Structures are given as C-alpha cells and as structure tokens.
Amino acid sequence: MSSDANSKRKIALVTGASSGIGAATARHLAGEGYHVICAARRIDRIQAVADEIGGRALACDVTDAEQVDTLAREVGDRLDLLVNNAGGAVGLEPVSEADLEAWRTMFEVNVFGTARVTKALLPALEQAEGTIVFVTSTAADGAYEGAAGYCGAKSAERAIVEACRLELFDRPVRVTEIAPGMVHTDEFSLTRFHGDQTKADKVYAGVDEPLVADDVADAITWMATRPRHVNIDRMTIRPRAQASQFKVHREG
C-alpha cells in the first residue's frame, strides 16, 4: 500500500489487545479497513496480533501515566476510534473476605486506566471527529455476590461514559458503550481465579454456547462503523442462555 493510501486509512487504537475481546476486535477492525494500533502490556502478544493484521504494536500499561503519555505521543494528532477494552476482574469473594488489594487493581485498570487513556487521546479523537467505545460489563447493571469490587469498578467506568457523553455533547466525538454478559475467553475467568482452571471452567459449565470474543468484537465493529451522526449509547450483549445477570440456563 502506498504511503498516500495508508495516510487516508482510518486509525483505531484498541487497549488490552493482547488476547480475548481486544485481540478479536483488532482483527475485526482491520477487516473493515482500519489501521489498528494494538496496545497492551505484553509486547510479544500484541506484536503477534499486529503482524497478523498489518497493524502496529505499542506496549502500554494503562495504569502507568508515563506509558500512557508515550502512547498518546506515538498515536499523534489524529485518532478515528478508541476502544477502551483493557480491564478485568480479580477474585470472587464476599465483602467480609474481600482482598482489597485486588479491588485496588480492578479500579486502577478499569477506572483510572480507562480515564487516563481517554483523557490523553481526546484531542486526537476530536481532531478526527472520532468515536470512543467503552467495553464495560453487565456487572455495571447491579451487584452480585462475590463481585462487589468488580461491579463497583465497572459501575464507575460506566459513570465515565455517561459523563463524557454529556461533556462532549457539542464536540464531534461519539461516546458509546458495550456491556457484555457471559463471554467465554481464554483468560478472563482464569485471571479472576488466579490461574485455577477448574474454577474458571465452572463459570461456563452447562451453558449452551456462551458468547465468545468474536461475538463482542463483531458488535463493537458494527457500533464503530455506523454513520457519523448515529451514536449507539449502550449495547447490552448476552448469550441466549443468559436471561439476566442472575438467571442462566445450564444443562445437566
């Protein structure tokens, strides 16, 4: 591709692009013609994704202010799409047994990290009349047992979404949110349970066809590619077997 043609391509940045929803989203966006910048802590993982899709890998820990500043400088003065995907859950204990350091980790990534990246890249997004997609969770809809820290973090992230939409109402930036329910990825539950594969597998036991990363990536890509005057405020996406946060059909 010529440098002139490349300069006309839309540019997307996906945080947490080393695996799961982030990596799948990077692939889907590349398929739609975006030049995708893949950002995550693990440079080897994001380099592999970037090489696969003809994108660019930038190592960045969203909890580190200096690394986010470097990310913003590398992106430059124009960004068409930011997918705030970096996040995750740690632990599933009741409040009486809460690991508050795990709570701190969840807030640092899901809340402060998301806010830090958004703040740093807003000028470039405004210059391009761009779009922000926040990947929250149905955990932001209400608390459930053992997840006070994660639900609190995702609720706070949703507050960022809603405040940004109000604050940017007169600027050419779309602010959108996707709230996935039960998504079976390689790492989400494994990380939550500190590498315990048995506990991770139990989350999805008996569930007929939970969502997979590609399902969410497909929805994100659809949201991002609507006409510029169309804003998808929030999309909730669940597997058919999950009627609500509390009601999941499990066979056997």
Rank of each mutant, 00 (worst) to 15 (best):
G31E: 09
V216M: 08
L92P: 01
D61C: 03
T176I: 04
A205D: 11
G113K: 00
S189N: 12
G87W: 01
T131N: 10
G16R: 01
R250E: 10
T15M: 01
D215P: 12
G142R: 10
L29I: 13
P210G: 11
I237G: 08
D201G: 06
R158S: 12
G181F: 02
E157C: 06
V14K: 00
C38V: 13
V49R: 00
C151S: 13
E129R: 15
A163V: 12
G76P: 05
V36M: 04
L13V: 09
D233G: 07
A30Q: 05
D201M: 08
A89L: 06
A26C: 14
D69G: 06
E108N: 14
A139R: 02
Q245A: 15
L168K: 05
V161L: 05
M223A: 05
D4G: 09
D215M: 12
G206F: 09
A26G: 05
R250I: 12
E145G: 14
R56I: 07
P123F: 09
I237R: 04
G31P: 07
V173K: 03
D218W: 10
C60W: 00
I232F: 07
R226S: 08
E52G: 05
A224Q: 01
A102N: 13
R228F: 03
E209K: 15
Q245P: 06
T15Q: 02
R192K: 13
V173R: 01
E126C: 10
V173C: 05
A217H: 04
I132T: 05
Q127N: 15
V83E: 05
V135H: 00
F112A: 00
I232H: 03
K247R: 15
T70Q: 10
N231M: 12
T114H: 00
A147N: 14
V117E: 01
G206N: 11
V68A: 00
P210R: 14
A24Q: 05
R56W: 06
G91K: 05
Y34E: 10
R73C: 09
M1Q: 13
A243Y: 10
A179S: 14
A26I: 07
G22R: 02
E187Y: 13
G88W: 03
R116Y: 00
G87A: 07
A243G: 10
V75G: 02
V135S: 01
L92G: 07
L121N: 05
R174V: 09
L29Y: 02
G55H: 01
Y34I: 09
D214M: 07
R78E: 08
V83M: 04
T225Q: 04
M223C: 07
K199Y: 02
E167F: 08
Y204V: 07
A159R: 09
A39W: 01
A17Y: 02
I160Q: 01
P94A: 13
